[in-house]
Design a protein around this nucleic acid. Structure first.
Lengths: 222, 222
DNA sequence: TCAAAAGTGTTAAGACTACACCCATGT
DNA sequence: ACATGGGTGTAGTCTTAACACTTTTGA
């Protein structure tokens, strides 16, 4: 089967920068390519937009295929449309970024996943296509948005302690925070609440557990 | 001549929301369609991305074709990729927005421009495709960005008065500002300078003229 | 001399920053 | 009892918001 047009058409893909925070590092999921071009290099998960599929739906599908996780934060990032970015044919890529919780993530077996691995964004391997630019842009957007919204909470699992949130923010921004000020700020946003339960973890005082309030998506601050 | 692929390919266009401020209204340039679909409705300027043309370059070209203006602010906005947005074939549109100065704009003769006109964003006519959504998104981004950057100055002509800048900000945001506070804020940003000249306009005290400092692009504040 | 827009400082309130000690637990 | 991370308040500084009169010009 083949498809014919009067004018040349580009191919359109989505690529997804999937962030998580683990071992005090901001990491992104990459897949090692098994065939040319860029054989052996690492690339962002992604794929072609089907002709009867919304671009957003394509990104959701790719995300589910790679991570097996549904209902996580996903946002369109930017569209990369330089002519030579794929040596095979003209490919325009609509990039997205996603945030998956620190804990509770299992990479899905099958498909490309055998070659999938998390990489610290501070020590990226050789990347295919313009994927280094895409990750750089995603990281910029992530750090900017974490300063004026509650986006960072999308990294948290169902229940979490205030210290966990703080250490997450410190990891992503690279800046240490004052404990008292951080807690005042976070609680004043009024988007999390105590669960009532405590988390015991070692030879020290247990920490209160919190969860997102029902109504909370990402809240823009100020 | 025709072009054949193994898999179906969408068409890709750019559409541009060109904003200006005129008569104390935020306006956008629209073109009345002369043929189906949506014949008679108004649409954003735009067109197909050529196979050997960067997506950004396509937006620049469309902008120049419509307005005859070069070197004005242009930023990628969002990519609209719902399946049914164009009834003819699958079309994915990479939307941009541009800011042209209040004064000194002449619509270019020729091409589609015979049917081009500025419309207040508060009183839009019937729009083709999903262009109402695109304009809504552009407006959101514009107002958000004007609060934390000097983007608004991109609306100003070469030389301008402080009162002109203030009234521009008031028009876009719909909020009145205190004159003294506004001037303090704007001058503290350190991105404009006096030209030395004055602007006389009627039976009142002349105003100092200002210009952007050499180095100034859009400055993110805070 | 009147009308119309330009220009100019001070004060009060609120937001942000810096900073140190006691608490609850496991070993 | 000690080591470990959890939890809490206050004072000083800086930023933001509110507010009204004088100046310069053309008619």
């Amino acid at each position: 089967m083949s498809y014919t047009y009067d004018y040349p058409h580009p191919a359109v893909t989505t690529d997804i920068v999937i962030f998580t925070v683990d071992e005090a590092m901001l990491k992104t999921l990459l897949i090692q390519r098994g065939s040319p071009p860029f054989e052996g290099s690492w690339a962002l998960p992604g794929g072609f937009v089907r002709i009867d599929e919304d671009v957003d739906a394509c990104a959701k599908r790719e995300l589910a295929e790679e991570t097996g996780v549904r209902d996580i934060y996903l946002e369109q990032l930017y569209t990369f449309g330089a002519v030579g970015r794929d040596p095979r044919e003209r490919v325009i890529s609509v990039a997205y970024f996603a945030l998956v919780p620190c804990r509770g993530l299992s990479l899905k077996a099958g498909t490309d996943a055998a070659n999938a691995a998390w990489h610290s964004v501070n020590a990226l391997p050789e990347l295919a296509f313009d994927h280094r630019d895409i990750i750089a842009k995603a990281r910029e957007r992530l750090t900017a948005k974490m300063e004026y919204s509650t986006l960072g909470l999308m990294f948290m699992p169902e229940e979490f302690t205030l210290s966990e949130v703080q250490s997450l923010y410190e990891t992503v921004s690279g800046q240490e925070q004052d404990k008292r000020n951080f807690r005042k700020w976070l609680l004043a946003l009024d988007v999390i609440e105590e669960t009532g339960a405590m988390k015991t973890a070692g030879a020290h005082r247990p920490a209160k557990l919190y969860r997102l309030k029902d109504t909370t998506g990402v809240v823009i601050i100020r």
